[in-house]
């Protein structure tokens, strides 16, 4: 076991898969010589050469289009989109091509590309460096969508994504690259080295795509969340002294419905939290699924915590970010409803 932050864990995942599989290649803006603006690909070009770690032009549609072609010719490309905010020029290649080539060719062709994209706010990035666009891709049949919330899962999920046969959108919550973040920007940062999930095996292992993790068990309420919000939710529950069960879904598509519904049926209460905007956010899918599967077990209406339905503003970062107070208010609302039923 080694101590790694999320960047080192992702780097280790790439290193391990590139060493094991000659067909794994990395392509993206600044990923080669420089090692990526977030350093995730650091040292890889030196180790594996410039034929396998390719600096690319600033053209996300071209990066994904070329990666699809490489995959059609037997490579396993890992494409980096420097910020998830820049993924939009690639949407046609992702939604119309990457997701559907297997389907439209009746399984004769497939293109298992992994697209990594740092996402989320809390880094003073303003509206073009803070977005969480994961829900857009969960609406596309044919791609898997994952987001790890700690170094251990980041490495295991990335290896699973690269070694799997499906295209994967791999979102990395960059606010927690270096350490967990409880939503309080005034507190000194905690490094991953002090967190149990910062313990990461150096070698090969996978975390299966499509399985949620119960981060903390509890009886009062189920909090369903992912990414940076896992730690914000933990802090909020602690603040209120509520015995919350916290589920990090890790994978939005496919979704581990069984883990979620089993928990909600047991606690009878549910708060859903994500950084992305609320309207048509992934929370809507979660809420609808829970309503369908757990309705007769619910003691209170499901609450959603999310970013406001605005672009991500620069000067109002902490007014925008769904911090512990917004989670706490939602928790209080679901817990208050208890009185009404008793």
């Amino acid at each position: 076991m080694a101590r790694m932050n999320m960047i080192q864990a992702l780097n280790s995942a790439l290193d391990v898969t590139m060493a094991r599989h000659r067909n794994v290649v990395v392509i993206g803006e600044d990923v080669g010589y420089f090692g990526g603006v977030f350093r995730v690909t650091e040292g890889l070009q030196k180790k594996y050469g410039d034929q396998r770690v390719l600096d690319s032009p600033i053209a996300e549609g071209g990066i994904v289009g070329a990666a699809i072609g490489m995959a059609l010719n037997g490579l396993k490309p890992v494409a980096e989109i420097q910020f998830a905010d820049y993924i939009y020029p690639a949407i046609d290649q992702i939604a119309s091509e990457l997701a559907r080539i297997r389907y439209r060719s009746a399984g004769d062709f497939s293109c298992p590309v992994t697209i990594r994209a740092p996402c989320g706010g809390g880094i003073r990035g303003g509206q073009t460096h803070s977005q969480s666009p994961e829900a857009l891709f969960t609406h596309v049949s044919g791609v898997q969508v994952v987001m790890p919330a700690n170094p251990y899962d980041a490495k295991g999920l990335l290896i699973a994504a690269i070694e799997g046969d499906n295209p994967v959108l791999f979102f990395e919550p960059k606010r927690i690259y270096n350490g967990p973040f409880d939503g309080n920007p005034n507190k000194p940062a905690i490094p991953w080295s002090e967190h149990p999930k910062g313990e990461v095996p150096e070698g090969h292992y996978t975390v299966p795509i499509g399985s949620a993790a119960t981060v903390k068990t509890g009886d009062d309420v189920t909090i369903i969340t992912y990414g940076t919000m896992v730690f914000v939710c933990e802090a909020a529950a602690q603040l209120l002294g509520i015995d919350a069960e916290i589920i990090d879904i890790r994978s939005m598509s496919p979704l581990d419905t069984a883990t979620i519904t089993a928990s909600v049926k047991r606690t009878g209460r549910c708060v859903i939290a994500h950084e992305a905007t609320r309207f048509s956010g992934f929370g809507a899918e979660l809420s609808a699924t829970i309503q369908e599967e757990c309705f007769w077990h619910l003691e209170a209406p499901i609450q959603r915590v999310a970013g406001w339905d605005t672009p991500y503003p620069h000067a109002f970062e902490w007014e925008y970010f769904p911090g512990p107070a917004r989670v706490a208010l939602a928790l209080e609302t679901v817990m208050e409803s208890k009185g009404a039923t008793e």
Binding site: Q51, N73, L75, E97
Partner: peptide
Amino acid sequence: TQFPQAVGWAMAAAI
């Protein structure tokens, strides 16, 4: 959409 894909395929052949 097939145009950059063909280029990627060719890049892989060269790699």
